[in-house]
Simulated scan of single mutants.
Amino acid sequence: MSVNVPADRPQIDPHPLSPYVAWAGNRNRDPILAVFKEIFPKSGNVLELASGAGNHISYFAPNFPTLSFQPSDYNVEVFDSIKKKRAEAGAKNILDPIKIDLTAPESWPSASDRLFDVIFVVNLFQVAPASICDGIAQVADRVLTKDGFVAIYGPFKVDGKYTTESNAAFDQEILAPKVAEWGLKDVRDLERAAKPHNIALKRIVDMPANNFILLFGRA
């Protein structure tokens, strides 16, 4: 199956400071922002998981001056980049990044410190195991407000099937290096991982380039 690769796309590299991640972030940020403008609350706290270089949070936050944004990542190497992009964006509502490792409960935030109205993560699962959703759901169960939601953006399979030929081709490209856990995940696997923690899939939003935003909330 051939892959129609945009001419300006760098080689796939999931490292958060790579040219590919920056390219992908610039490509998808406006469609995501358009949805967030419709669904984000007027005020409250927003947590980004796997913030990486800070490309998305520094772009989104200035559009929501009455919300407080908390970046996080398991890799403290990216914290300087997050702070730099915050300064470049002039975003006064982005807090200092914190370390959250979704596989390490001891690193997860506490409800006694702060509750979050929104938790979001962008372009994680094509290079991470579906089981990471277990960690996301547990974090959500711990610190999500009663009516809060989790927004997960990316390309996914649905009921074991690709939704488009281009997603099938993209998956083959991701799988080609034979790196463990790389590849498109199935929405239903994420749904099953979240269910034991009382977090349920509420809505699937179709996005450009054959991507989705999966909206989860308390069951």
Results as ranks from 00 to 15, higher is better:
residue 3 V to M: 14
residue 7 A to E: 14
residue 14 P to C: 00
residue 16 P to Q: 04
residue 16 P to V: 01
residue 19 P to T: 12
residue 20 Y to P: 00
residue 21 V to P: 01
residue 24 A to K: 13
residue 25 G to N: 10
residue 30 D to R: 12
residue 30 D to I: 11
residue 32 I to R: 02
residue 33 L to S: 09
residue 42 K to D: 15
residue 45 N to W: 10
residue 49 L to R: 06
residue 50 A to D: 11
residue 51 S to H: 04
residue 55 N to D: 14
residue 56 H to M: 05
residue 58 S to C: 11
residue 59 Y to P: 01
residue 60 F to C: 07
residue 60 F to R: 03
residue 61 A to T: 07
residue 62 P to Y: 09
residue 69 F to V: 09
residue 71 P to M: 09
residue 73 D to W: 00
residue 74 Y to V: 11
residue 75 N to D: 15
residue 76 V to I: 15
residue 76 V to K: 14
residue 91 A to R: 09
residue 94 I to C: 05
residue 99 K to M: 13
residue 99 K to N: 13
residue 99 K to W: 02
residue 100 I to E: 11
residue 103 T to Q: 13
residue 104 A to D: 15
residue 105 P to Q: 10
residue 108 W to T: 08
residue 111 A to K: 14
residue 113 D to S: 13
residue 120 F to T: 11
residue 124 L to P: 03
residue 124 L to Y: 11
residue 134 D to I: 03
residue 135 G to F: 07
residue 146 K to F: 02
residue 146 K to T: 14
residue 150 V to H: 00
residue 151 A to M: 12
residue 153 Y to L: 02
residue 157 K to F: 06
residue 157 K to S: 07
residue 159 D to V: 00
residue 169 A to Q: 13
residue 172 Q to D: 14
residue 179 V to W: 07
residue 179 V to D: 08
residue 181 E to D: 15
residue 183 G to A: 03
residue 185 K to T: 04
residue 188 R to A: 08
residue 192 R to Y: 09
residue 193 A to F: 01
residue 204 I to P: 08
residue 205 V to N: 04
residue 206 D to M: 11
residue 207 M to N: 08
residue 210 N to I: 01
residue 211 N to C: 12
residue 214 L to D: 12
